[in-house]
Nucleic acid binder design. Structure first.
Length: 473
RNA sequence: GCUCCCUUCGUCUAGAGGCCUAGGACAUGGCCCUCUCAAGGCCGUAACACGGGUUCGAAUCCCGUAGGGAGCGCCA
């Protein structure tokens, strides 16, 4: 009965970014660990900024990460609907209740008036809070304001004066806020829709959420929601405010600073295992070493080990997890992953062979594409060191190599035989034997094993490249 | 401006008064292994923001300072 229920409640106003993905992961992990439920709720009350395509994309991203939900807009659940835009009836009932009890009041102040008031307060060095213009109007005054108004009023929550609101944050510990620092805030917009503080808190209660893990940007807003829940007689969840995720420059994540969305990473070929493992360790510590499966991460997840300080996203660390994840892929999974990166014009068997041959050197699919091009099209451009090595090997070396290749026909496939023949003809061995051959064939002094690659060069290419190495340009 | 949160190697972090000569991972440098690179193994460089307290003893507690972040919206 005390089962943990967590939720992820994004607003569909853009692509899921890494910070969101991380709080989603933590919430999922917590529910998963305790055998609880994970709820997906879409906060689309702001019709202007919410888009249907984002709702779809968001769910795709979450599924891709492997964060499956037990209740959500697509699968329903006992406390639906899971789209806030469809829950207005319950909000309206609560609005009426609060207003009737005098805990909320209509406000006719225009955005312009409020903006002016805010600016002058800020200029005077005071906190920019609602001045209370409409707070204590009597019936006649309200009627007058209503008659004069050009737009419907908002509904404001009456924040009680002189109280202290405390709660025990799951990551930051005990918190204490004075209600005198909080201005009366809008809970229903002029167009009748519910504002974030309101519907977010109300839905958490209605959906039986027990633990809310969210960004630290919500920490100082929590007392408002606690006040609201108290006024409505609803239970409050435990809140845990996770430190924000920063860019590698220490500034907040932003597109400008090169922050990539989950979709960007996915399209670049990053593997979900890599992203999840990296996110797990950003702002969270664990004795767990190495790449872990989601269930193992869940078992190793502890609220106590969520950090209080903002963490920076680091490409190098993601890359390291990506490398581990790529190498851990099964043969079949690697094929699925890299097939789209193969150039056209290869038969399936060749594509598979190429993937198998290069995958140890592949971190991202683009690496596989690069190697495929080098093999199928042309070697990478020579650098000075490469040219020097070719010259050091000498014409006779490549004459012998080309002859050895020719002896195997247009499509040489026996690398040991080829190298043995060159060794026999020139006496070269070790690096002096293999480096020039590698550079002649690929243009680079490093790369995948050549033996499995040899049969994948285009017909005649091996001999041609060995001959070309006599006069590098 | 006011309120709140935060500050350990380049990065992610361990550390809850003596176990810290501050540990691990990524990155980085070197060596080994090796027909290249990678992988693997070994070794190294590198941090308690600053200043005051409290204490026999402080990375750990308290107070300031500096720096970073968030909130104070008819955005979520």
């Amino acid at each position: 009965m005390s089962a943990v229920v967590t939720r992820f409640a994004p607003s569909p106003s853009g692509a899921l970014h890494l910070g969101n993905a991380r709080t989603a992961l933590f919430s999922w992990l917590l529910a998963r660990r305790d055998g609880g439920r994970f709820v997906l709720r879409i906060e689309d009350t702001d019709a202007e900024r919410s888009q249907a395509e984002h709702i779809v994309a968001l769910q795709d991203d979450l599924r891709w990460l492997g964060l499956h939900w037990n209740e959500g807009p697509d699968i329903g659940g006992p406390n639906g609907p899971y789209l806030q835009s469809q829950r207005s009836a319950s909000y309206d009932a609560a609005f009426a209740d609060l207003e009737q009890r005098g805990l909320a009041y209509p406000c006719w102040c225009t955005p312009l008036e409020l903006d002016v008031a805010r600016r002058s307060q800020l200029a005077a060095g005071r906190p920019p809070r609602y001045a209370g213009t409409c707070r204590d109007l009597d019936a006649a005054q309200r009627a007058a304001r209503a008659a004069r108004a050009s737009a419907p009023p908002t509904l404001r929550f009456r924040v009680p004066a002189g109280r202290s609101i405390g709660f025990d944050d799951l990551v930051h510990g005990p918190q204490q806020f004075a209600t005198d620092d909080i201005g009366d805030f809008v809970i229903r917009r002029g167009d009748g829709t519910a504002a974030f503080f309101f519907c977010n808190a109300l839905d958490d209660a209605a959906m039986g959420i027990t633990h809310v893990l969210r960004g630290e940007d919500h920490l100082t807003n929590t007392p408002r929601q606690l006040l609201l829940l108290e006024a409505l007689g609803q239970p409050a969840p435990r809140y845990g405010h996770v430190a924000l995720l920063m860019g590698s420059d220490g500034a907040p994540l932003s597109k400008r600073a090169g922050a990539r969305s989950l979709g960007d990473l996915r399209r670049a070929g990053y593997l979900p295992e890599a992203v999840v493992n990296h996110l797990f360790r950003l702002g969270h510590s664990s004795p767990l070493q190495g790449l872990q499966l989601p269930d193992a991460l869940a078992r190793g997840f502890t609220l106590e080990h969520l950090g209080c300080a903002p963490a920076r996203f680091d490409d190098a660390q993601l890359a390291s997890w990506q490398k581990d994840a790529a190498h851990a892929l099964s043969e079949e999974a690697a094929l699925v992953w890299l097939l789209p990166a193969m150039p056209p014009g290869l038969d399936p068997a060749q594509r598979a062979a190429l993937i198998t041959a290069v995958r140890a050197n592949v971190v991202l699919p683009e690496d596989a594409t690069r190697w495929a091009r080098i093999v199928r099209e042309q070697p990478a451009p020579l650098d000075a060191a490469g040219r020097a090595l070719l010259e050091a090997a000498g014409d006779a070396f490549f004459d012998a190599a080309a002859a050895a290749a020719a002896s195997q026909g247009a499509q040489p496939a026996d690398w040991p035989a080829l190298t043995a023949a060159v060794r026999a003809a020139t006496g070269a061995k070790g690096p002096a034997l293999f480096k020039p051959l590698r550079i002649a064939l690929t243009g680079l002094d490093h790369g995948p094993e050549l033996a499995p690659l040899l049969p994948l060069f285009p017909p005649g290419a091996v001999q041609q490249r060995l001959l070309n190495a006599r006069h590098p340009d």
